[in-house]
Design a protein around this nucleic acid. Structure first.
Length: 209
DNA sequence: ACCTGCGCACCAT
DNA sequence: ATGGTGCGCAGGT
C-alpha cells in the first residue's frame, strides 16, 4: 500500500534502478552511484530526473532490501540481490556464523562499524536462509559474533562491530600437506622466475583502515 | 562525445 | 581450481 504513488512509484524506481544495475554489469563495469545515475537518466531523458533524486531512490531501494549495497575496494557497488542469491545459509542449532558476520561487516563498509542489527539485515538480504524450525537467528548471531571476537576476527565498540584486518584462517584446506620443496636447484641463483608472471604490486589494502 | 564490449588480472571461496 | 568482479582500453555509433 505504500508503494504506489505518493510522490513517485517506488516499484518503478526499483525496476529502473535494477535495470540500470544489470545493464552496467552486462558491460562489465562497476555499478557505482555515478554510473547508476547516469544509466537511469539516460533511460528516462523525458523525466530528466536530477541526480539527487535518483540517489534518494537508490538509497531507498537499499533500505528496502531491493538493492544490495556492498563496500568493496574503497567504493560502494550496488548489486541485484537476485543475481547473487546463490548463497544458501543453513541455520541449524549450533551453526557458526562468525565468518558470515565478518564478511558482512566488511562489506557494509561502515567506518565506525556496524550494529548487529544491520549485519543481520545485510545477511538476510544477501543470502537465502534456511532456518531450522526452532532456531532464532538473532541468538545465533549474538553467539557467533562472540565467537568471531574470541577468534580475533571482530572487535566491537559499544554496539558497533568492526572486522579486524586479518582473519578467517579457519580451517582452510589450503594445501594441508605442503611438501616437496625442491631445494635442489640452488646452484647459482634462485633469482628470476622466468615463465610465470608477476609479482605485482602490493598495494590494495594498505590505506587507512 | 558517448556507448558497448571484453580480456584478463584480482579476489574470495 | 573455480567463479564473480570490474579496470582499462578498443571499437562502434
Amino acid at each position: 500500500m505504500r508503494d504506489q504513488e505518493g510522490g513517485g512509484q517506488t516499484s518503478s524506481w526499483s525496476t529502473w534502478i535494477l535495470d540500470a544495475i544489470r545493464k552496467i554489469r552486462a558491460q562489465k563495469q562497476r555499478p557505482s552511484v555515478e554510473r547508476i545515475c547516469h544509466a537511469v537518466r539516460q533511460h528516462h531523458k523525458d523525466l530528466n530526473p536530477h541526480e539527487d533524486e535518483i540517489k534518494e531512490h537508490l538509497e531507498a531501494t537499499v533500505k528496502e532490501g531491493i538493492v544490495l549495497k556492498v563496500f568493496n575496494k574503497g567504493q560502494s557497488t550496488y548489486k541485484d540481490p537476485g543475481g547473487v542469491q546463490s548463497r544458501q545459509l543453513e541455520l541449524s542449532k549450533g551453526a557458526d556464523l562468525s565468518k558470515v558476520i565478518v564478511k558482512a561487516a566488511r562489506e557494509l563498509g561502515e567506518r565506525d562499524g556496524s550494529t548487529l542489527k544491520s549485519i543481520e539485515k545485510y545477511i538476510r538480504q544477501s543470502h537465502a536462509l534456511n532456518v531450522s524450525a526452532d532456531v532464532d537467528f538473532r541468538s545465533l548471531l549474538r553467539i557467533s559474533a562472540k565467537r568471531a571476537e574470541a577468534r580475533g576476527y571482530l572487535v566491537h565498540d559499544g554496539r558497533l562491530y568492526k572486522p579486524t584486518g586479518r582473519p578467517i584462517v579457519g580451517s582452510a584446506p589450503t594445501t594441508p600437506k605442503r611438501q616437496s620443496v625442491q631445494v635442489k636447484f640452488g646452484t647459482d641463483k634462485i633469482s628470476q622466475v622466468v615463465g610465470k608472471s608477476s609479482f605485482k604490486s602490493r598495494n590494495t589494502k594498505g590505506k587507512n583502515f
